[in-house]
């Protein structure tokens, strides 16, 4: 197997007495999609925020491309991006303006061509002049995906990218992501509450519960290990287990 492109070791995050992420370790390899699964409050989003350098870990280390995030923030973030249903972009700027600002923040060359290309790929050319505040939820999700993919990251963090979207848009986004990931050899960390989506998208799954990793492997391996019929049943079983004292 190739060398991990992302290595997380003994990562811990404490907010006062509360431990949001408790000593977790995992890797992502080049071209792999790792699913981060768990109920609300399991520590998925906190983990992603630490991987993006937005939250400082209490302990542990994060290495990407063999570099320590704590020491090589700029070099690493240049090659990383993220998208989430829960983030936003400046409302008073148009779709195109927002993408141009992002392109400059990532020091991209040929900005206009890059913006045109990503808008076309995500079927957004017709809304390029639309103000961001006037976008529908689905269009907003595609915009945050466009801003993430336009920078051609080597690692992409997707935090519930399809939450609260209608099935048609979810289907389109998933299809686009899978094709893009195959062509670009992109590594993805993917969180979702949709078990079918998780099985469909991920090569491997890490199950988080109360900040701990409680299961790890392919969807089939996890289902077999817990003797359940599918991932959803495993999710319900694990999510309902009380927190160990």
């Amino acid at each position: 197997m190739s060398k991990p492109i992302l290595e997380v070791r003994n990562l811990t995050k404490k907010f006062g007495d509360f431990t949001a992420v408790d000593n977790i370790s995992f890797d992502i390899h080049e071209g792999e999609i790792l699913g981060l699964l768990g109920p609300n409050g399991a520590g998925k989003t906190t983990t992603i925020h630490m991987l993006l350098g937005l939250i400082a870990p209490s302990a542990g280390s994060i290495h990407m491309f063999g570099l320590d995030l704590a020491e090589h923030r700029e070099e690493i973030l240049q090659q990383v991006n993220f998208s989430s249903t829960y983030i936003s972009m400046p409302f008073s700027l148009t779709v195109e303006e927002n993408l141009k600002v992002i392109a400059r923040l990532y020091s991209l060359q040929n900005i206009q061509q890059r913006v045109d290309a990503i808008l076309e790929k995500l079927e957004m050319s017709d809304i390029r002049s639309k103000l961001t505040r006037k976008l529908s939820t689905g269009q907003m999700s595609r915009l945050t995906l466009a801003k993430a993919l336009m920078t051609e990251p080597k690692i992409l963090f997707l935090d519930e990218p399809t939450a609260s979207l209608d099935p048609d848009i979810v289907h389109k986004i998933k299809a686009f992501l899978k094709e893009y990931q195959r062509n670009a050899g992109l590594s993805i960390l993917y969180t979702s509450h949709n078990m079918r989506e998780m099985e469909e998208m991920s090569n491997r799954i890490v199950f988080l519960q109360h900040g701990h990793i409680v299961a790890e492997g392919t969807a089939d391996q996890i289902v077999q290990r817990y003797g359940q019929r599918d991932l959803e049943e495993v999710f319900l079983k694990l999510a309902r287990e009380p927190k160990a004292q």
């Binding site: 350098g53 937005l54 700029e74 936003s88 992002i102």
Partner: peptide, 18 residues
């Protein structure tokens, strides 16, 4: 404040911007 109102701080500080 403009960044805060438009919830754009994450986009900025998860980018290489120092």
């Amino acid at each position: 404040l403009e960044e805060m109102w438009s919830r754009n701080l994450m986009n900025l500080f998860a980018s290489p911007l120092t």
